[in-house]
Simulated assay, not measured.
Amino acid sequence: MRFHDLRHATASLLLGEGVHPKVVASLLGHSTIQITLDTYSHVTPGLARDAAATLDKLVASKIASNTAAVGPDHMR
């Protein structure tokens, strides 16, 4: 395994686990997070799925809290 392969694996695994790109960029010595994201974000297809699931939970929670705040008398 080449050193570059280890760097690539490190970035891919950390980004895939939701580590902030700024932290990954710092660990890899990149001058900007844009370099990190341009180079490694394509290898984390599960992130879009995770983001959609998170958004779904947030929206459902917001709807539930608004419904609870209004109360059952106003639901008619």
Rank of each mutant, 00 (worst) to 15 (best):
T32A: 11
S41N: 08
D38C: 08
S26D: 14
Q34P: 00
V59E: 09
Q34M: 12
L58C: 11
L27D: 02
I35L: 10
H30F: 13
T54Y: 05
G46I: 02
K57Q: 12
H42V: 06
V23T: 15
G46F: 01
V24H: 00
V19I: 12
L15Q: 07
G18N: 08
S41G: 01
H42D: 12
V19K: 01
L14N: 07
T44D: 04
S31F: 06
A51H: 07
H20Q: 05
T36D: 03
A48I: 06
Q34G: 12
L37V: 13
V24Y: 00
L58G: 04
G18E: 05
A53T: 09
L58H: 12
R49I: 10
P45F: 03
L28M: 12
S26K: 13
G18V: 04
L27Y: 06
S41E: 08
R49H: 13
V43S: 13
R49C: 07
A51V: 11
K22N: 02
D50V: 06
R49L: 12
V23K: 10
V23M: 08
V23S: 09
D38F: 02
V24I: 07
R49G: 04
Q34E: 11
K57N: 09
K22S: 10
P45I: 02
I35G: 00
T36H: 06
A25E: 04
A53C: 05
A60D: 14
V24L: 01
T54C: 02
S26I: 01
I33E: 15
Q34C: 08
V59Y: 07
D50E: 13
L58Y: 08
T36C: 15
A51Y: 04
A51E: 13
L28R: 05
T32Y: 03
V23N: 03
G18P: 03
H20E: 05
T54G: 04
A51P: 05
L27M: 15
R49F: 04
V43K: 11
L58W: 03
E17T: 01
A52R: 15
V43E: 14
V59H: 06
D38R: 13
I35K: 06
K22V: 10
V59F: 09
G18Y: 02
I35P: 00
H42W: 08
E17I: 00
V59S: 02
E17D: 12
Q34N: 11
G18D: 05
H30E: 07
G29N: 10
L27C: 10
L47R: 13
V24E: 00
I33D: 15
L27R: 10
A25D: 05
T54S: 07
Q34T: 14
D50H: 04
I35N: 05
L55V: 09
L27W: 04
T39P: 00
G46R: 05
A52I: 12
G16I: 01
V19H: 00
K22W: 01
V43F: 11
